[in-house]
Structures are given as structure tokens and as C-alpha cells.
């Protein structure tokens, strides 16, 4: 068994959290409150030291030796202060200004990401194998795979197209699309189980190896 204090604290907190599986109890509550308190403190510190201080306050109030204050930073500081106006009913409308700015920037970034990173490459990846020069170079299994992907994309899209009634050939396509979606959800569920079991393995390995030293 380990002699250091930290593995004992980590082991005690791990067991306290897992004790909830039996039933709610004071040990679990203590571990939960410690986690919530530590997380809040950690993220407050994280935001201050990594974002607010180096990017906003240092250039404005404590510039490097020889540099002049960056007065442009008054604008984000002002917008940041406006974020807190939502705490008071009379001033809460002012929060719309910084939120508008945040939404605009996020939208700009996301549109580029979606078009450059997803829509164009994914469309290309779906249809490129069917160009004559590409298709003849594919193996049988690659060709079948490409056909299945194309069928999956088209039928799944028809399921989410609601301007036509899902009847006849269109309805059949939508129904096939549902099967593709279900297979996709099943694969995701399988991976999710693996992820959750991995977390349990990680904790049990810590208890057995690092704390109790019964395995290497």
C-alpha cells in the first residue's frame, strides 16, 4: 500500500464518488461539493491567468517596459463589464451588445469552419470516388464502401427533408435512411460503452496499482 498522502486522498475521493452507486450518502456529498468548489475556483483562476490578465489587463494597465498602454483594450473591457449588467433587471437589456459581438465572431468562425472543414471536403469525399478515373482504380470492397456511403448520405438526407410527404419512393428512401441512422447511433453507443468502461478501468487501475500496489 502506498505511503504518500495524495494517493490516499485520491483513493478516498474515488471511493466516495463510487459509493453513490449503492445509495446517496454523506461521503458522496462531501466529494461532490469538493469537486464543485475546486472546479469553480480552478476555472476562475484559469480565465484570469490565461485570458483576462495577459490579453486584456496587462496590455492596458501594466504594459511591458517601454511599451505604451494599448487603449484599444478599453473596448473589450467595456463589453466585458456589460456582461454583468444582466445581474440587474433594470440594466439587463445592455447585455445584448456584448452578446451580439460574441455571436457575430462565433458565427464568422463557424461558417468558415463548416464550409472549409466540413461541407466541401465531405461532399468531395462522398462523390470523388465516382469520377471515372477514380472508380476504376478502386478495389471491389472500396467500390462497395463508396456506394454504401453515397446511399447512406442520400437516404439520410431524405429523412430530414420535410417539404415532401414521406410516401412512395421518397418515403422508402427516408425509411432506409432511418436504418443508416440507427446503425450510426448503435456504433456511437458501442463506443460510448467503451469510453465509460475505460474510465472505470482507469480508476480501478489507480486503486489497484498506485494505491494498493497489488498489480503493476
Amino acid at each position: 500500500m502506498t505511503t504518500g498522502i495524495w494517493p490516499w486522498i485520491a483513493a478516498a475521493l474515488t471511493l466516495a464518488i463510487y459509493s453513490f452507486l449503492y445509495k446517496d450518502n454523506p461521503f458522496y456529498k462531501v466529494a461532490e461539493y469538493i469537486f464543485v468548489g475546486l472546479s469553480a475556483g480552478y476555472w476562475a483562476s484559469y480565465m484570469w491567468w490565461n485570458y483576462a490578465k495577459p490579453n486584456l489587463f496587462n496590455p492596458l494597465f501594466w504594459p511591458e517596459a517601454g511599451a505604451s498602454p494599448n487603449y484599444w483594450n478599453i473596448i473589450p473591457l467595456f463589453l466585458g463589464v456589460l456582461m454583468f449588467t444582466q445581474l440587474f433587471r433594470q440594466t439587463s437589456w445592455m447585455v445584448r451588445f456584448p452578446l451580439t459581438f460574441v455571436l457575430g465572431v462565433a458565427l464568422g468562425l463557424q461558417i468558415i469552419a463548416a464550409i472549409e472543414g466540413d461541407i466541401i471536403p465531405q461532399l468531395g469525399g462522398t462523390f470523388a470516388p465516382f469520377l471515372k478515373s477514380n472508380f476504376v482504380a478502386l478495389s471491389v470492397w472500396e467500390a462497395i464502401g463508396s456506394i454504401v456511403i453515397l446511399a447512406g448520405v442520400i437516404t439520410s438526407l431524405t429523412y430530414f427533408y420535410f417539404s415532401f410527404e414521406h410516401r412512395g419512393a421518397f418515403g422508402t428512401s427516408a425509411k432506409i435512411g432511418v436504418y443508416f441512422l440507427m446503425i450510426s447511433f448503435g456504433a456511437s453507443f458501442g463506443y460510448t460503452v467503451m469510453a465509460r468502461i475505460s474510465l472505470l478501468i482507469g480508476r480501478l487501475h489507480f486503486l489497484l496499482a498506485d494505491w494498493l500496489h497489488v498489480i503493476k
Partner: peptide, 25 residues
Amino acid sequence: TAIGAPKYYQYLQTGQLVGLIGGMK
């Protein structure tokens, strides 16, 4: 991590990713 891995298979076919190490497996 395994929970997010299925999403990234689509980027293999397009060549945006050269490979994927999914989860503990």
C-alpha cells in the same frame, strides 16, 4: 476518446486525417 471517435471516421475517407487512434482499443 472512444465517445467521440465515430465522428472522426468521416475525415479519414476525405483524407483530412491520415489516421485515427480510437479509444482504449
